[in-house]
């Protein structure tokens, strides 16, 4: 074990694509970043922006949202809604001067195990560069 800082990242993964993709990455024995804590949701459309916000305000260093590619949603259109919400959240973060780099949305299909491993470790690296979430120190939040 080295003392290197490992960020804490929450990942909201849709059951049908991203989560299955993550599973595939696992069974394919691809190296996956240890920073990610996965929460499975039935659809990326279920990811309430408040989940993301709460995660960050409670001290997570980053939040990943993952769902099916556009057009592939198990529920036809959930990921389109997710995309709008993500865009809204991103803009809101920019307006308020929060680090919008701490959130991200990716489409990962059930067969994209390597892509899953790649985007999550890339994101983890970026968060590492950003350092710990300043909110963690904030008492009067």
């Amino acid at each position: 074990m080295n003392d290197e800082y490992t960020p804490k990242i929450i990942g909201f993964l849709c059951n049908w694509c991203a989560y299955t993709g993550a599973d595939l990455a696992g069974v394919s024995r691809i190296q996956i970043t240890p920073s990610l804590r996965i929460i499975r949701v039935m659809c990326s459309g279920r990811i309430d922006p408040l989940f993301v916000l709460k995660g960050l305000l409670k001290g997570a260093d980053g939040v990943m949202m993952m769902g099916c590619h556009p057009g592939d949603c198990h529920y036809q259109k959930g990921n389109y809604s997710a995309r709008r919400r993500y865009v809204l959240l991103q803009k809101l973060f920019e307006d308020l001067g929060f680090e919008s780099e701490r959130i991200g949305l990716w489409w990962v299909s059930a067969s994209e195990g390597p892509r899953y491993a790649q985007v999550s470790s890339e994101f983890s690296e970026e968060i590492k560069k950003l350092g710990p979430n300043p909110v963690r120190e904030e008492i009067f939040i």
């Binding site: 408040l50 916000l53 305000l57 001290g59 963690r136």
Partner: peptide, 25 residues
Amino acid sequence: EQKGGIRIPPGTIFFHIGRMIHMAV
């Protein structure tokens, strides 16, 4: 334990930004 101190009631900022997400548009 983590912070050494917490504001009570909690979630002031969460409420305002959360409400923003819900209705600002």
